[in-house]
Design a protein around this nucleic acid. Structure first.
Lengths: 240, 240
DNA sequence: GCACACAGGATTGCGCGCAATTCATAGCGC
DNA sequence: GCGCTATGAATTGCGCGCAATCCTGTGTGC
């Protein structure tokens, strides 16, 4: 079949979402990339997305363009859009940026030491543990990234929170592309200690731990060994 | 005259630039906003920009959309785009973000202490001083912001450099909206000391100075006194 | 058997036009 | 004189269609 394959799978069947806006298309594509239903190198053909979302090409184009600006897709003029496949240099940039920015957000949260904020962080951590116990690894990883986004939001700085959201998304692309040689078992403990330091208002230790946490996440990856990217279309989900 | 006023002035007559792309339109609008030729609250009518740049509406729309994502313009659906007018809370966010991010870039530059990089920074500072002596205040301010962008670029982290570029641009919007009660005389000295610390590899002092520098810039503003924004069109430059 | 050239199909880029909504002005009632 | 309403103009949102460009598959020559 020569017809472009359908990409409808980017929307989950469980929570059938309304997609009637360029922003909706953006959100669903973003989620699909972060959740690794769309793998790096996947070509995002406009017409396929038009059929998938039932929108006009302009809406799809704007959504794709925004994702391009956010470095989640790369755009070759007159050739199309592909899910981004960061190289080692870009990966290092992302981790360095996370260290710098999340040091700032952690400092703010620890300095405030707001009980309500701490409770939300603890809640997030509990949910993640529960999901992990039940074997829902994908959702657990999703929440694990959400922990960092939540921390950024609780810092009260919308600009930094938005950046952390994008950096976490790019991180999920990176961890997919580079073999991780170490397990990620240490994550929870770090998050747990992080919450304790923030609750106690121990700013210095909280910041140091966050930096170490992100650095460790980076070190767990073999940045000199990138998985070859398949640049052909991948059927995430098939319709009909 | 009922016709929409021309906005051609966004391109400087001196360096007549080619504008044949959505990216070009974006760059010129960006420069016009940063250089304060387009003031906060100015309405950016699509048709006016179409005539000014000689492009289609789609190219203008994408440029405007990108500026919206970058928080340099605000977009009211079905009503149009306006040059952003940040409030006090957003201003605080921007400065806090700059402290966090530029602490990171400064640390990287100071740690490397690369003579070539130091030379570029010194060059930038010399040029700014020369312009300021000659009374070209606008170009001097432009370079002064460029110093921070240059530092970010020299840190080798493209992600952080891009963020600094946007934050500096938003800062130029902010310093226009809030009365600054103190002069900005201290800038040069700060930048000068910053270069010295970086050249000497004094990481701690360089980072501390950068944080103090940005904080001082924020404190020079009266964030509780915002200049009223004129939400009507402003003729930056008039054609015919 | 391999490399190059050519042609067909597919995909993106972009201008054009209409429909829907909003803002401004003028008119009317109180 | 003041406020409200209604009509008109202007502007944005969006789908449609054509032209330009790029990839793929085939055929030919060496």
């Amino acid at each position: 079949m020569k017809q472009p394959r359908r990409l409808v799978g980017v929307m989950n069947d469980r929570n059938r979402p309304r997609v009637e806006d360029a922003g909706d298309a953006y959100r669903h594509l973003f989620a699909a990339i972060v959740d690794q239903r769309l793998l790096p190198g996947t070509k995002l053909t406009e017409m396929a997305l038009v059929e998938a979302f039932g929108l006009g090409r302009r809406a799809i184009g704007t959504a794709l363009q925004r994702l391009t600006w956010e470095k989640l897709v790369v755009f070759f003029p007159k050739r199309g859009a592909f899910v981004a496949a960061p190289d080692a240099a870009e990966a290092r940039d992302v981790f360095a940026a996370r260290v710098a920015i999340e040091a700032g957000t952690t400092e703010a949260v620890a300095r405030a030491a707001d009980p309500a904020a701490i409770a939300k962080l603890q809640d997030n951590l509990d949910q993640e543990r529960a999901l992990r116990r039940q074997g829902h690894l994908r959702e657990a990883i999703h929440l694990s990234g959400g922990f960092h986004v939540l921390m950024a939001e609780l810092s009260g700085n919308r600009t930094l929170a938005e950046q952390v959201r994008l950096l976490v998304a790019r991180t999920s692309l990176i961890v997919n592309l580079f073999d991780n040689q170490a397990g990620l078992a240490g994550w929870h403990d770090h998050h747990d200690d992080l919450i304790r330091h923030c609750a106690a208002g121990e700013v210095e230790q909280a910041v140091a731990l966050m930096r170490a946490h992100i650095t460790e996440l980076q070190d767990a990856l073999a940045l000199d060994r990138r998985r070859p990217v398949a640049f052909d279309m991948v059927d995430v989900f098939a319709r009909d």
